[in-house]
């Protein structure tokens, strides 16, 4: 069994609404029963509602596998980087620290690393991963390139990422703006000093003309969402 070559994973974090559906669905996957492997990351919770659904990007040359002292992480022929092989994993946590996308998770009590394996029990028989099945905003989409082209006329997928001097190519794609010269790769470390933009929420108080309104702090910034 292997994941059909024409089926690809497309991630568009800017469409994520932070609903946690993917997190719940992920834990139902048979290859890591009861544990969710998705990181739904709040970029800066005090300032923004921006969230990032982080699945394994399934690198062509996985850093996690290369730095594994037990040689426990393997990439199958269809390009899916599997969770650590249970007999071998010595729970050192090297993979957790080395992954450029911050994906693997260590379970110390069970002495094992687990990570998103693209719901291999499903995708290897042509089904969608659990997260992509339930994502209401389609921030996580699993299908063919023709389908994504038709659905997202303003976007185009890329699977190359830059981390300092290192370029990583992955099996999973990220959607970037379609333009005459689309970016060939996403420079992740260039966002080191980026911060999410505040929402410009303004209360139109009766009697105040726009010119008299002072710039206000976001009234919802401290609200837990």
């Amino acid at each position: 069994m292997s994941v059909p070559r024409q089926l690809e994973f497309f991630v568009d974090p800017s469409r994520c609404i932070g609903c946690q559906s993917c997190v719940q669905a992920c834990s139902e996957c048979d290859t890591h029963k009861g544990e969710s492997m998705i990181h739904l990351e709040y970029v800066d919770r005090g300032q923004s509602v921006q969230t990032v659904p982080m699945v394994c990007m399934h690198c062509e040359q996985p850093t996690c596998a290369e730095v594994c002292p037990a040689d426990a992480i393997k990439r199958t022929g269809d390009g899916v980087v599997q969770s650590a092989r249970k007999p071998r994993c010595i729970a050192c946590g090297n993979c957790v620290m080395a992954c450029p996308f911050g994906v693997p998770e260590l379970y110390i009590d069970r002495q094992i690393m687990m990570k998103c394996d693209m719901c291999y029990d499903r995708t290897s028989v042509g089904k969608k991963p659990m997260c992509a099945t339930v994502c209401p905003s389609q921030a996580l989409f699993f299908g063919t390139r023709a389908e994504i082209d038709a659905l997202r006329p303003q976007s185009t997928p890329t699977n190359r990422f830059r981390f300092g001097s290192q370029t990583i190519t992955t099996r999973v794609n990220v959607m970037v703006p379609r333009s005459k010269s689309p970016p060939l790769m996403l420079d992740v470390t260039a966002a080191m000093d980026e911060r999410p933009e505040n929402r410009n929420v303004r209360l139109n108080v009766v009697g105040n003309s726009p010119s008299t309104i002072e710039p206000m702090l976001d009234p919802f910034a401290e609200v837990e969402v």
Binding site: V52, V96, M175, P177, S181, L184, M185, T189, E194
Partner: peptide, 28 residues
């Protein structure tokens, strides 16, 4: 020297910046 949590956040920020006009892309 960057923690895993920040790596995930930077990934989202880098992608979002392409849509808001900031530049987090590279043409290599």
């Amino acid at each position: 020297q960057i923690c895993p949590r920040c790596r995930r956040a930077m990934f989202g920020l880098a992608q979002a910046s392409l849509w808001t006009g900031h530049t987090a892309s590279s043409e290599d």
